[in-house]
Every structure is written in structure tokens, then in C-alpha cells.
């Protein structure tokens, strides 16, 4: 009798502990963020990570009651990592057919358009001159530029922060980027010499909705992320983060 009780107790303990362990394992999410993409994710003056996407990711984790660890990599690297299934969430991606085989997508959490920035008048230059266009590696903008490049265009792929440095140094003529990031640069001290070149690209050029990429097949997680996005929008968390980074309310 006593023996049996002991065995039962040990079994129960084992069961409970394994359950708790499994839960903890599920609850710990790996979230991928671009390592150099102001103002979405960047190193601030004090050398610590900050940015809009990071704050949103933290809010989502809090809403889902999950513990998150953040993985900082260049965007194309993040896509690769996601393809290998080594991260659970990836902030700030658009839903494209090419990405769908290896990741799922949440509902969009904001929308953005794409613009060219550069020194004013650069487009009016002698058309014989070769254009050096910077794009974030791996993004929909890169694919767009690759598809529409002319012979005279040189595409420079890199991280957004580095592209901005190149633009300031004159190593680039223009950058095609998400307008939010571009405007924040233009409004900054360094961006004073630069301006928007032409009109924003038309909406139908490529997806303008920005989503959270979710590890393929993690349906439950995707639902949770959707719910969390809805929650942080409703409870004002998203609006507060928005205010911290952008001069107007995001769409």
C-alpha cells in the first residue's frame, strides 16, 4: 500500500514537472529583430537595443504572457534563420508568396509605403549618370528594385543604418526604403540635406502591410499573436509606442 502510494506520488511529481517544463519551453519565444534599422530596431546612444519593433515585440510578449528572447541579425539573415526554424517570431515582415513556404504571418500591425530619398535634384541629373540605389537586403523593396533595375542602376544591398551612412558620405545616390524610416531620417539632423525624391511608389508595387512572421505550422502561436496585436491596439499600448517614435499615428 505504502509502496504503491510512493510510486503514485513520484509519477504525479514527474508528470507535473514534465508538464511545467513543456509549458516553459513553449512559453519561451525567440523573436527576431533587425540589428540596425532605425527607428524600428537600433542601438541607441547608450549602446543598448531600442526601437519601435522591439517595444512592440515586448508588448506582444507581455500580452501573450510569454517570456521572449530577442535575436538581432540583419534582415536577410533573419529570414534564413526563420527558414531554419530557429526563431519563433520575426518582426516587421510583409506577406509574400516567396516567404510563405517557410513562415506564417500574423495580421498586419501597421502599414507603410516606400519612397526614394536622396539629395534633392538627383533624379534631374544627367540621365547618363549611373545610379547607385541602396536597399535593405532581403526586403520586398530589394526584390522590387531587382525586378525594375535598368542597366545604369547599381544596387547596393545592406543594412539600413549602413546605407544611411553611405548616403551621407555620398557613396549612394538614393535609398529605396520604408517611408516611415526614411522620413525619420529626413527629419533627423543628418537628413537635412536630403529629401523625398518623387512620389511614393504606388501601393500595388508590393505589399504595404507589415506583419509579424510566425514559425511555420505554429497555428496556435499565430492565433495568439493575432490576439495580442488586437489587444495592444485596443488597450493603447501600441498608440503609446507609436507616439514615442513617430510624429503621427501609424496606419
Amino acid at each position: 500500500m505504502v509502496n504503491r502510494l510512493h510510486i503514485l506520488g513520484i509519477l504525479a511529481l514527474f508528470f507535473l514537472s514534465s508538464q511545467a517544463w513543456a509549458e516553459e519551453k513553449i512559453a519561451r519565444l525567440r523573436v527576431g529583430l533587425d540589428s540596425d534599422y532605425p527607428p524600428f530596431s537600433f542601438l541607441n546612444e547608450r549602446g543598448s537595443h531600442s526601437g519601435f519593433d522591439l517595444d512592440v515585440a515586448k508588448a506582444l510578449c507581455e500580452s501573450m504572457a510569454c517570456r521572449c528572447e530577442f535575436v538581432y541579425q540583419p534582415f536577410d539573415g533573419l529570414l534564413e534563420t526563420m527558414r531554419r526554424g530557429e526563431i519563433d517570431l520575426l518582426m516587421g515582415v510583409s506577406d509574400t508568396a516567396a516567404r510563405r513556404p517557410y513562415m506564417d504571418f500574423s495580421v498586419p500591425y501597421f502599414h507603410a509605403r516606400s519612397i526614394y530619398i536622396g539629395r534633392p535634384g538627383v533624379l534631374n541629373l544627367d540621365s547618363e549618370a549611373a545610379m547607385r540605389v541602396g536597399v535593405r537586403a532581403g526586403t520586398v523593396q530589394m526584390i522590387y528594385v531587382e525586378n525594375y533595375q535598368s542597366r545604369r542602376t547599381t544596387i547596393i544591398r545592406g543594412q539600413f543604418g549602413r546605407l544611411l551612412d553611405m548616403l551621407c558620405r555620398g557613396d549612394l545616390d538614393m535609398i529605396l526604403a520604408n517611408d516611415l524610416a526614411a522620413y525619420i531620417f529626413l527629419l533627423s539632423e543628418r537628413g537635412q540635406e536630403f529629401d523625398v525624391l518623387g512620389e511614393p511608389l504606388p501601393l500595388e508595387s508590393f505589399p504595404s502591410d507589415v506583419r509579424v512572421g510566425v514559425r511555420k505550422g505554429a497555428g496556435k502561436l499565430r492565433e495568439n499573436v493575432d490576439m495580442a496585436i488586437k489587444n495592444i491596439r485596443m488597450d493603447g499600448t501600441f498608440g503609446r509606442i507609436n507616439q514615442d517614435y513617430f510624429p503621427y499615428t501609424l496606419y
Binding site: H111, A112, R113, I115, D179, L180, Y183, L186, L187, D195, V196, P200, P247, Y248, L250, Y251
Partner: peptide, 10 residues
């Protein structure tokens, strides 16, 4: 102007 421009685009 830039802010207005951004907003108008959005």
C-alpha cells in the same frame, strides 16, 4: 513640410 508629405502619402 516633410511631416505633411509623409502623412499625405500614408
Amino acid at each position: 513640410r516633410l511631416k505633411v508629405q509623409a502623412l499625405v502619402a500614408e
